[in-house]
Design a protein around this nucleic acid. Structure first.
Length: 888
RNA sequence: GGACGCUUAGCUCAGUUGGUUAGAGCGUUACGUUGACAUCGUAAAGGUCAGUGGUUCGAGUCCACUAGCGUCCACCA
C-alpha cells in the first residue's frame, strides 16, 4: 500500500514520537546490537541548572558519531550521565537559600539539612537535564545512566582513593592553598580568576632596608628579609644575620635570608616574606626552613597578631595600617597607580587568600610502587609513545596542537590538592579514632583508617572534607562500566562484568578546551593508574560558541540562547545542523539565528525532495533495485557522483571532519541531486529513472541521518520501512562501479544556452534555435539533444556541429537576426588554449619532480614513504599528460 | 615572563600529508513562479589568502622576521 508524507514538515509534530520509538526499539542499548564495540561516554553536564548551547554542541558531536558508527554495524554504547559538580552546586544552592532569606545556610541548616536541600535541587536539575538530552535526540543507552555521585560511582571513588593511599600517592600535609573566604573552602589553582586592579604601592622602612608592598596588612608578622645573594648593594649583609627594628606594632627581630628567586631589579630588590599568605613566600620559607604565622583568618579578618587591628576586614584595615606607619615615620613613599592582580574565585567572585591548611594531596611525582614511574610519567606516556610503549594505548588529541599544550602543562604540574571544605561531594574515606582529634587537624596518623567501607567499632569519626569534583569525573570512562567488579557491585547485573572488557578503552571523547586540564588530564591520570589502560583513543577538542559579536554566551550579558527555544522554533535537526556545519576542532565559532534559519531551510528542502521523489513511487522505502543495463547517461552520472560522495563522507568521518562531511552532503543534495538530476527526471522519463531517484534519495537519507536524525527518520518510517533508519545499514562504497559518464559536459551545454539567453536578453517565452559546436563530444551531445531541449532551455530547434568559429563572435552575429541564436558549448579556440596551458603545466611539473627524484641529496634525506608517494604522483601526471596529448 | 593560536570575498568561516582556475553559507545585484520547494530557482559581481623575505619546478599551505588580534599557564614582593 502506498504511504504518503504530509505536505509540510513540522518538527514538533514528529520529534518526541520518533525519539520514543527509537528508545522502545531497544537499539540504543548495545546489548541488542552486533558488531565491534564502539563506546562514547557522555561528558556529564553539571547538575547546576539547565543545558546550554555548549552542551547542545557536545550532544550533537557525540551523537553524530554514535549514529554513524551504529549504522556502520558497530555495537555502539553511548552512556548518558550527570555530574554532581561539588563546589558549583553547593554554591548555587547556598546562593538560592540566601536569596530566600537564609543568612548563613551552613550554620542554620547544618550538614545534614544543607545536604538535603542540595540533593533536592540536584535531583530536579538532573531530571531537567536528562529530558533535554532526549530533546537533542542523543541516542544514548538509558539503561546505563550514571551520575558521578551515585552509589556505584562512590564505590569506585573510595576504591581508587584507598588504592592510591596504599600506594603512598595520597598524602596529607600542611600546604599553602587557595582559600575562598566566601565559599569557605579551598579551591584549585585553575578555579582562580585574576583581576587587574590599581592600588597604591607602598615603600616601607624595615630596619636598614626599604621594602615595597601592595598589601601592608599581611606584614604584621614579617621577620625575614630576603635579597638576592649576588646583589652587591646588600653584600655587607650575610645570610642568617639578625637585627632588631621598629615595625607596625613595636619591635621585631628580623633575619636576613639570601635567595636567588628575588629579582634585584624589582622594587628595591629586598622584600619581607609572609609564608602563610603567599605562594612564593611559602616556597622560600620551605626552602630555608623558616617559620610562618597566620595573619588573616578564614573569614578574611585580621588575627590577634595584628594587635588593635585584630578582627578588622583586611581591605578596611589597610588604610589604617598605612596611617600608623606614617605616624611611626616608616612610610617612605607611595606609588599611586601601581597595577597589580588580585585573585578571585571563579564561582564566588570573592577574594582568594592563600592560607596554610591541612589538605589531602595526590603526589604526581612519586614513583608508583611496582611501576617504576610516576603519575606524571603515565600522563606523558599516554599521549607520546603510548602507555608502556604500546601504540594501541596511545591517545590522539584532535586538533594536534593540543598535544603540546597538554605536555607543557604536565611539565609545570604540581601535586593535586583533592580535599575541599564543602559538604556536597564524595566524603573523604578516611576515619580518625582519636576522639580528641580536632578534625581536620589531626596529626595522629596512627589512628587513621582509610577504607572503602567505614571501620568497625566505636569512636571513629570521618574526615569532614569532601573530594574535589574532578576526582570522581576522572574515573568516568570506567566507573560508568561497572568498575570495580566486586560481588556486591554487580549483584543482579551480570552483564556489567563484561562491559569494562568490551567497551574500555572508550573510542572517543569530546570536550571544550577549557576543561582540558581539569578533566582530560585527570582522566588520563586516573585511568592509566587504575587500569593500566588509556581512557579513550581519540579526544576531540571543540571550541566555544560565541555570539555574533564574539562574546561568550551568558545569562548575565543577556545574549543567552536557550537550545530549547531553538528546538521549539526550528526543530532539533535545525539546531544540530547549524551547530555542526562551519565548525572546526579547537576553534571557537559564532552562533546566531541566521545559521539556524539556513539549516531549517535546507531541512525543508530535503523534505520537499522526499515528497517529490516518493510521490512518484509505487512502493515505500526499501528494495531500491534497478537494472544497470537500462541506465542513461544522466543516471550513471548521478550514481558515480553518489559513490564518490559516500567515499568522501566516510573519509571525513574517520578524520572527525563533521562539518566538511555535512557540507559535501548539502552540496550534493542541493546542487547535484535536486537541481540537476531531479529536474531532469521531469523530462527524461525512463523505466529506471524512478528507481535510481529512489535509490539515491534513500542513500542520502542514510548519509544524512547522523546529522539530522529526526527528519530522515520521519521520511523513512513515514513511508513504512520495516526497520528504523537508526539501524539501517550505511550505504556501501562500491569501487568505481559507475564511471563518470561525461554528463558534466551536457550540463555545461545547458548552462551556456541559458547564459546566452540571459546575455542577449531573450524573452523567457520566446522559443529559439540553438547551434552548438560540440567538438570531440559531438556524439555525446547528440545523444542528449532531447534532454537539452527539455531542460528549461526554451529552445525549439537544436543544431549540433562538430566545429565552428569562436563562440562569442557567432553570438554577436546572430543577435542582429530575428529568432536564431547561436550558442556554443565547447569553444574550440579556448579549449585548445586550455589544453595547451595544461600540457605546459604538466610538463613543467613532471620535469621538476623528475629532477627532484634524481637529486641525490633529496633521495638520501627524504623518508621512503614520501619518495614512494612522489613517484606515484609522477606516474599519475605522466598518464594524465598522455591523455591530454592524445585528445581524450 | 612562558606556551599556543588567529589574520582567506561585505559578514561568518572551510581549505585533509605543498600540486589544475582558492571554496561554502549569508549578504548584494539581475532575472525568474518551471509538473517537490518563495523556508524557492537561475545566474552575476566580489579575494595581490595581513606584510616582508626564504626553501621549492611549484607556497593560502613549510621556514624566519614584522604588524595587529586572541587564548591558556606562571605571576610581580
Amino acid at each position: 500500500m502506498k504511504k504518503e508524507l504530509p505536505k509540510t514538515y513540522n518538527p514538533a509534530e514528529h520529534e518526541d514520537g520518533i525519539y520514543e520509538k527509537w528508545e522502545q526499539s531497544g537499539f540504543f542499548n548495545p546489548d541488542n546490537l552486533k558488531g565491534d564495540p564502539y563506546s562514547i561516554m557522555m561528558p556529564p553536564p553539571n547538575v547546576t541548572g539547565v543545558l546550554h548551547l555548549g552542551h547542545a554542541l557536545e550532544n550533537s558531536l557525540m551523537d553524530v558519531m554514535a549514529r554513524y558508527q551504529r549504522m556502520c554495524g558497530k555495537k555502539v554504547l553511548l552512556v548518558p550521565g550527570t555530574d554532581h559538580a561539588a563546589v558549583a552546586t553547593q554554591a548555587k544552592v547556598e546562593k538560592l537559600l540566601m536569596e530566600k532569606g537564609v543568612k548563613n545556610p551552613r550554620q542554620e541548616l547544618g550538614r545534614e539539612g544543607l545536604l538535603k536541600e542540595i540533593k533536592k535541587y540536584a535531583e530536579e536539575s538532573k531530571a531537567t537535564i536528562l529530558s533535554q538530552i532526549r530533546k537533542m535526540g542523543t541516542s544514548c543507552d538509558w539503561s546505563r545512566l550514571a551520575y558521578t555521585f551515585d552509589d556505584e560511582r562512590n564505590l569506585a571513588v573510595n576504591t581508587v582513593f584507598k588504592k592510591m593511599y596504599d600506594d603512598g600517592l595520597i598524602y596529607r600535609g600542611k600546604r599553602i592553598v587557595n582559600w575562598d573566604a566566601k565559599l569557605q573552602t579551598t579551591i584549585s589553582d585553575d578555579e582562580i580568576v585574576w583581576h587587574e586592579e590599581k592600588a597604591p604601592f607602598y615603600y616601607l622602612q624595615y630596619g636598614p632596608f626599604v621594602i615595597a608592598t601592595a598589601r601592608p596588612e599581611t606584614k604584621f608578622g614579617d621577620k625575614y628579609v630576603v635579597m638576592h645573594p649576588d646583589d652587591e648593594r646588600y653584600a655587607q649583609y650575610k645570610h642568617g644575620d639578625k637585627f632588631e627594628c621598629e615595625w607596625i606594632n613595636g619591635k621585631v627581630t628580623a633575619t636576613i635570608i639570601k635567595d636567588s628567586i628575588i629579582e634585584p631589579e624589582f622594587g628595591t630588590g629586598v622584600m619581607t616574606i609572609t609564608p602563610w599568605h603567599d605562594m612564593v613566600d611559602f616556597e622560600i620559607a620551605e626552602r630555608h626552613n623558616l617559620e610562618g604565622e597566620q595573619i588573616i583568618d578564614f573569614n578574611g579578618e585580621l588575627m590577634p597578631i595584628a594587635g588593635e587591628f585584630a578582627g578588622m576586614d583586611i581591605l578596611k584595615a589597610r588604610p589604617k595600617i598605612i596611617e600608623r606607619l606614617k605616624e611611626k615615620n616608616l612610610l617612605v613613599k607611595v606609588e599611586e597607580d601601581y597595577i597589580h592582580r588580585v585573585a578571585k574565585g571563579d564561582r564566588s567572585d570573592g577574594l582568594v587568600e592563600p592560607q596554610i591548611k591541612e589538605q589531602w594531596f595526590v603526589s604526581v611525582n612519586k614513583i608508583i610502587p611496582g611501576k617504576g614511574k610516576s603519575l606524571k610519567d603515565l600522563m606523558r606516556e599516554a599521549v607520546e609513545a603510548g602507555l608502556n610503549n604500546d601504540p594501541a594505548q596511545k591517545i590522539t588529541i584532535i586538533p594536534e596542537r593540543f598535544h603540546k599544550t597538554y605536555l607543557n602543562w604536565i611539565d609545570n604540574l604540581r601535586d593535586w590538592c583533592i580535599s575541599r571544605q564543602i559538604w556536597w561531594g564524595h566524603r573523604i574515606p578516611v576515619w580518625y579514632a582519636n576522639s580528641k582529634s580536632q578534625i581536620p587537624n589531626s596529626k595522629n596518623l596512627e589512628d587513621i583508617y582509610v577504607g572503602i567501607e567505614p571501620p568497625e567499632g566505636e569512636g571513629w569519626i570521618q574526615d569532614e572534607d569532601t573530594l574535589d569534583t574532578w576526582y570522581s569525573s576522572a574515573l568516568w570512562t570506567f566507573s560508568t562500566l561497572g568498575w570495580p567488579a566486586s560481588a556486591e557491585a554487580t549483584a543482579g547485573k551480570p552483564a556489567d562484568n563484561d562491559d569494562l572488557k568490551t567497551f574500555h578503552p572508550t573510542a572517543w571523547m569530546q570536550m571544550g578546551y577549557e576543561i582540558l586540564f581539569f578533566w582530560m588530564a585527570r582522566m588520563i591520570l586516573m585511568t592509566t593508574y587504575t587500569l593500566d589502560e588509556i581512557p579513550f583513543r581519540d579526544v576531540y577538542i571543540h571550541g566555544m560558541l560565541r555570539d555574533e559579536k564574539g562574546r561568550k554566551f551568558s545569562k548575565s550579558s543577556g545574549n543567552n540562547i536557550d537550545p530549547l527555544d531553538v528546538i521549539r522554533d526550528y526543530g532539533t535537526d535545525s539546531l544540530r545542523l547549524s551547530l555542526l556545519l562551519g565548525v572546526s576542532p579547537g576553534n571557537d565559532s559564532k552562533f546566531y539565528e541566521e545559521k539556524i534559519i539556513g539549516a531549517r531551510n535546507f531541512i525543508t528542502k530535503l523534505w520537499n525532495i522526499s515528497l517529490f521523489v516518493f510521490s512518484n513511487q509505487e512502493n515505500g522505502v526499501g528494495n531500491s533495485e534497478f537494472n544497470n543495463a537500462n541506465l542513461t547517461l544522466a543516471d550513471k552520472w548521478i550514481l558515480a557522483k553518489f559513490q564518490a560522495l559516500i567515499k568522501q563522507v566516510n573519509n571525513d568521518f574517520s578524520n572527525f571532519r563533521f562539518s566538511q562531511a555535512g557540507e559535501k552532503l548539502r552540496d550534493f543534495t542541493r546542487s547535484e541531486f535536486a537541481d540537476w538530476y531531479l529536474e531532469l527526471s521531469k523530462f527524461e522519463k525512463t523505466s529506471e529513472k524512478n528507481k535510481v531517484l529512489k535509490y539515491v534519495l534513500e542513500g542520502l537519507l542514510k548519509l544524512w541521518h547522523p546529522f539530522i536524525p529526526f527528519i530522515t527518520e520521519a521520511v523513512w518510517s513515514g513511508l513504512g520501512a520495516d526497520k528504523p533508519l537508526l539501524i539501517t545499514e550505511w550505504p556501501e562504497e562500491k569501487a568505481a562501479e559507475y564511471e563518470e559518464s561525461g554528463f558534466d559536459i551536457v550540463i555545461e551545454v545547458i548552462k551556456s544556452i541559458r547564459n546566452a539567453r540571459a546575455e542577449n536578453k531573450v524573452e523567457p517565452a520566446k522559443k529559439v534555435k540553438a547551434i552548438i559546436y560540440a567538438g570531440k563530444d559531438i556524439k555525446l551531445i547528440e545523444s542528449q539533444a532531447g534532454l537539452i531541449k527539455g531542460l528549461r532551455t526554451g529552445i525549439n530547434e537544436l543544431e549540433i556541429l562538430e566545429t565552428g568559429e569562436k563562440i562569442e563572435k557567432a553570438i554577436h552575429a546572430a543577435v542582429g537576426g530575428v529568432e536564431i541564436y547561436l550558442v556554443g558549448a565547447i569553444d574550440e579556440v579556448k579549449e585548445k588554449e586550455r589544453i595547451k596551458k595544461e600540457v605546459e603545466r604538466l610538463e613543467k611539473m613532471i620535469s621538476g619532480l623528475t629532477g627532484r627524484l634524481e637529486n641525490k641529496e633529496f633521495m638520501e634525506k627524504a623518508p621512503e614513504e614520501i619518495i614512494k608517494k612522489e613517484k606515484e604522483k609522477l606516474e599519475n601526471w605522466k598518464i594524465e599528460l598522455e591523455k591530454l596529448k592524445s585528445g581524450n
